[in-house]
């Protein structure tokens, strides 16, 4: 029993890490560059952008987006919901589960829900 436990532990430790990242970490890695350290849409990249990134702390505009729309725009990019091409698709970077977590994370940033 004890041996089996260690074997399992080893397999998990050595398996290719498709480990899920925390949404806050994914946000820091991929979203902050445009949406900003504070999530206020004032990222380091915005100077020459024709369209400014969404302010994720703006409850009014964020409550106008359904969770499904947020999932779609993260996975497939801005044009998928008729928004800017400057918002890229993150479907090859984040798993569906990570994107669902990111939607929840966005709801904590805006302190809002869809339609609220």
């Amino acid at each position: 029993m004890r041996n089996r436990f260690w074997l399992l532990a080893l397999i998990f430790a050595a398996s290719p890490l498709q480990a899920q990242e925390l949404a806050a970490d994914n946000y820091r890695a991929y979203c902050v560059q445009c949406h900003g350290m504070e999530g206020n849409g004032k990222g380091v990249n915005i100077r020459d952008m024709a369209v400014q990134p969404r302010d994720h702390t703006d409850a009014k505009s964020m409550s106008g987006r359904s969770d499904e729309a947020l999932f779609k725009v993260i996975k497939e990019g801005g044009p998928a919901i008729d928004k800017s091409v400057l918002m890229p698709p993150w479907g090859d970077t984040l798993s569906d589960e990570e994107i669902r977590d990111m939607v929840l994370h966005l709801r904590t940033l805006c302190k809002c829900k869809f339609g609220s």
């Binding site: 560059q33 445009c34 380091v44 990249n45 100077r47 020459d48 952008m49 801005g78 800017s84 091409v85 400057l86 918002m87 890229p88």
Partner: peptide, 17 residues
């Protein structure tokens, strides 16, 4: 393609990350 969001195509024009 929106690549300018993150990349500069001449010095001081484009993104920084």
């Amino acid at each position: 393609y929106g690549c300018l969001a993150c990349h500069q195509i001449e010095p001081e024009f484009g993104g920084f990350s």
